[in-house]
Amino acid sequence: MARPQHSTFDKKKTVAENRRARFEYHIEDVFEAGIALTGTEVKSLRFGEGSIAEAYAEIRGGEAWLVNANVPEFSHGNRFNHVPKRPRKLLLHEREIDKLHGAVERKGMTLVPLSVYFNSRGRAKVELALAKGKNAADKRNTIKERDWKREQGRLMRDHG
């Protein structure tokens, strides 16, 4: 029997964040996935380097892959250093992969990485979202709401 999932994940140290994703997409469901990394990739991430700004995930051959994520070469690495933009395997349960694959195929959704972090046990994890793209009007509404929230905060601070 599977362990119950927490509503929020135990993030200890966030390495990379895709802040643009919440603006570009409606986030439906969020999953936590492990990443299969080599030694120099882990060291590079521990130094706080890495970017998932242009990254996405896809299901290929019954496996989940993180594509286009940039983990720069480790500065003290030697000839065994890694390739910075190689596809990295995501570690998910088969049931979760099937659910994600079905949503992407049937509903036309996208798998977007929201953040890369180390959990309390020191394992590298990816916060993966099942998302649907926003149109231009939705993006304008998001900007309008964000500006209004900022203005509300100013008014409350000045007159509160």
Rank of each mutant, 00 (worst) to 15 (best):
R22V: 14
E41C: 08
G62S: 05
A103D: 03
Q152R: 14
K13R: 06
S51N: 15
V15N: 10
A33H: 01
V83G: 01
A21R: 04
H101N: 14
K139N: 02
L90G: 02
L91T: 01
N119Y: 00
S51E: 12
H159M: 09
G50W: 09
P72R: 00
S115L: 05
N141Y: 11
K107F: 13
A33S: 08
N81P: 09
V15H: 06
T14V: 15
K13N: 04
F9C: 11
V126P: 00
L90F: 02
E17F: 06
V42T: 14
A21Y: 06
A57E: 02
M156Q: 14
E127T: 04
K134M: 05
G122I: 04
G122W: 03
A36Q: 13
K99G: 00
D138M: 11
L100I: 04
M109K: 13
I35S: 07
K144T: 12
Y56K: 06
A103Y: 05
G62Q: 07
N81H: 03
N141R: 15
F31T: 03
S44C: 15
I52E: 10
K134Y: 03
H159Y: 15
R121N: 04
F9E: 10
A53G: 07
L90I: 04
V67Q: 05
K12A: 15
D98H: 09
H76M: 09
N70P: 00
R146V: 02
F47M: 13
A136V: 12
G153Y: 08
D138C: 09
K132H: 12
G122E: 01
L90C: 08
A36W: 08
G153W: 08
K13E: 05
R60V: 07
D10G: 12
E32I: 11
V71T: 13
K43T: 07
K89T: 07
K11M: 11
F31K: 07
G34D: 05
D158S: 15
R150H: 08
N68K: 15
H76A: 10
E145L: 13
M1S: 15
G61L: 04
K132C: 06
T142Q: 13
G153C: 00
I97S: 03
P4C: 06
G48S: 13
A69T: 07
T8N: 12
A2W: 04
H93R: 11
V83N: 08
T8P: 06
L92V: 00
G102Y: 04
E17M: 11
L100F: 00
